[in-house]
Write a protein that binds this DNA or RNA. Structure first.
Length: 558
RNA sequence: GCGCCUAUAGUGUAACGGAUAACACUUUGGUCUUCGGAACCAACAUUGAGGGUUCGAAUCCUUCUGGGCGCGCCA
């Protein structure tokens, strides 16, 4: 189904072989300009002919094959036209053969670790975590679909003085019943109150530090309280993870590496990488144009980088990954550059397999930056629930007789929020507003889901029809064949999304597919035309499987 | 100060260095019980500024401007 390959072989350009031409072939800009095009400008100088002459010569050498009908030189381009009926038959039968649930590719025997979501204990799971969670979750599914073995890692933020403060606050004002009932929200209130009271009472800070020391030293009372916080937090966030459909194979967070830090510092020392600076120990990176990487504070305590080094080493040892991705906001660009460089300096040949997958910031429309300390946060749970609530309202007004309303409301409401996060390039900053995140018109998940439901509904009315009578000449107009061409690009789109770690590429593709199908649908009666029924089935299945790679469900009715 | 990222219709975004820069929202007008109107059609309006490379630049290089982020004991 890779027509580019066929095209590269069906013309001759100088003495160039097909492989060289393959990479040059582009998709046609419009139906008139052909399905594919081969620009020849870059060869003009080398071959001593004008691009137009090259195009003419190439067109003269053209030999038609099973799927390529003809070509035409236009300026420095050769435009190629597919045999539409043959290609439509080929594409649709190939897609249909995959069944309703596309099987993942054959295992490639490579392991990918994806570090994503990585929430903090006792901190709210807010919209700031939305991007890392859904980008990571989507990449997880895409990698699995492409045949990789995937390990999802939630690198919990479960270590630091802040937890001493929290235990301290709990000792003073904590209420078990309230924590049991309201979970993280109750813990957050303790945290906010601590900072408010510490404004006036400086001794609180010291007391918080002492409590953290007790956690570090393994004090039973402190540890018990702390693990309770952890349990409460995980219970709360699991609800959201279930709603979003993401999963993790490991919850090894910062505290997990406590006993693995000394080995790292010893190794750094043995390799002569550690230097003393203002009482702290650092790896000097000035040679590489970077500030030093702090390994040990002057009081002997370890730092963020120390933990990430230990974690990378541990992951390599445990999973023997071929790639380790860190789906973390771009604020930490420098941090990861440093950590990866230090791994390289330590002599680990796999240092280059670690890759930071950065994404932009989320800010609030009116109140600006998020601040946990001030309690200025929007809970992701609330956003999702609001969206589901809005969907319930729409269903009541449009389709009150819909069966299984609640699960449809969930699929559509949650899908809208996920798509909001996944539909644009990772690196762009996002201003969160309910209006935009809960938009159901235009380029949104509900639009895609609606198209899917429409396909399902059409097909329900066409049961019994079989493909035997399909006349693929019925899909040879621009509208029908436009849908066919997009269907043919599903796999390369998924591959591109993985290549760039950009779920948005797949999101855009699905929007495009729905747009061309909806246009086709408006003036092509499907019922009674076996080839159109087949086309509709393929669209339905590609949408459903594509959405699934974006963590979005596709109900049959909505 | 140094480093990284970013700039595209009123708004939000898209475009392997390829042909006339696309899609959506908003606004206005239209399709009027159709195999699902959460749809479709039409109109309106765009590459921050200057240089350079190239047959060809939104895309690459460079200077400037605006915005964001980061730069030793937080994570």
């Amino acid at each position: 189904m890779d027509y580019k390959k066929l095209i590269a072989r069906c013309v001759r350009v100088g003495g160039l072989d097909a492989d060289a031409l393959y990479d040059d072939i582009v998709y046609g800009q419009s139906a008139d300009a052909g399905d594919y095009a081969l620009p020849l400008f870059k060869y003009a100088k080398r071959l001593g002919k004008s691009p137009a002459d090259l195009a003419k010569a190439a067109a003269d050498s053209f030999v038609a094959d099973e799927f390529i009908e003809r070509c035409a030189p236009v300026g420095g381009y050769v435009n190629f036209y597919l045999k539409r009926a043959a290609a439509a038959s080929d594409v649709l039968k190939t897609v249909a053969a995959r069944g309703q649930n596309f099987a993942p590719a054959k295992r490639v025997n490579k392991t990918i670790c994806i570090d994503y979501s990585s929430i903090n204990i006792a901190k709210p799971f807010h919209i700031g975590h939305l991007l890392t969670t859904v980008i990571g979750g989507s990449l997880y599914r895409i990698a699995a679909f492409l045949g990789y073995d995937v390990i999802g890692i939630n690198h919990l933020g479960d270590w630091g003085t802040q937890f001493g403060k929290l235990v301290c606050a709990y000792k003073k004002w904590g209420n078990d019943a309230d924590i049991e009932r309201r979970g993280i929200r109750s813990l957050l209130e303790l945290y906010v109150r601590f900072h408010a009271e510490a404004e006036n009472d400086k001794s609180l800070e010291d007391e918080g530090r002492r409590w953290f020391k007790r956690i570090e030293d393994g004090d039973a009372d402190a540890l018990k309280i702390f693990s309770k916080f952890k349990e409460v937090t995980l219970r709360d966030v699991d609800k959201v993870y279930n709603t979003l459909g993401v999963r993790f194979d490991s919850y090894n967070g910062e505290s997990f590496y406590n006993d693995k830090l000394d080995a790292v510092t010893r190794s750094l020392k043995a390799k002569g990488l550690l230097t003393e600076s203002d009482g702290a120990e650092v790896v000097d990176l000035s040679e590489f144009g970077m500030p030093p990487c702090l390994i040990r504070k002057s009081d002997g305590a370890s730092l963020y980088a120390t933990r990430d080094l230990a974690a990378a080493v541990y992951r390599k040892k445990t999973y023997n990954f071929d790639k380790c991705l860190y789906v973390v906001a771009y604020q930490q660009n420098l941090h990861f550059k440093q950590v990866f460089k230090v791994l390289e300096l330590m002599g680990y040949p796999w240092a280059g397999d670690c890759e930071h997958v950065p994404f932009g910031m989320v800010s609030l429309e009116n109140s600006g930056a998020l601040s946990t300390r001030k309690g200025n946060v929007v809970f992701l749970e609330d956003v999702l629930e609001t969206s589901v609530q809005k969907t319930r309202g729409i269903i009541e007004s449009k389709n009150p007789a819909l069966p299984d309303k609640e699960s449809v409301a969930k699929a559509v409401g949650v899908g809208a929020v996920i798509f909001f996060a996944l539909s644009t390039s990772r690196i762009k900053d996002t201003v969160f507003s309910y209006d935009k995140a809960l938009n159901f018109d235009g380029e949104t998940a509900p639009y895609i889901q609606y198209t899917h439901a429409r396909c399902c509904s059409i097909l329900e009315k066409c049961v019994g029809g079989n493909d035997a009578g399909a006349d693929f000449n019925g899909l040879c107009d621009d509208a029908g064949f436009g849908v066919v061409k997009l269907l043919a690009r599903f796999d390369e789109t998924v591959a591109a999304a993985w290549e760039k770690y950009e779920p948005s590429i797949l999101a855009r593709y699905l929007i495009d597919l729905c747009q061309v199908f909806n246009k086709f649908y408006i003036d092509h009666k499907v019922a009674g035309n076996p080839e159109r029924v087949l086309l509709t089935r393929c669209v339905r299945d590609v949408i459903k499987n594509g959405l699934s790679l974006l963590l979005i469900e596709a109900p049959n009715k909505m």
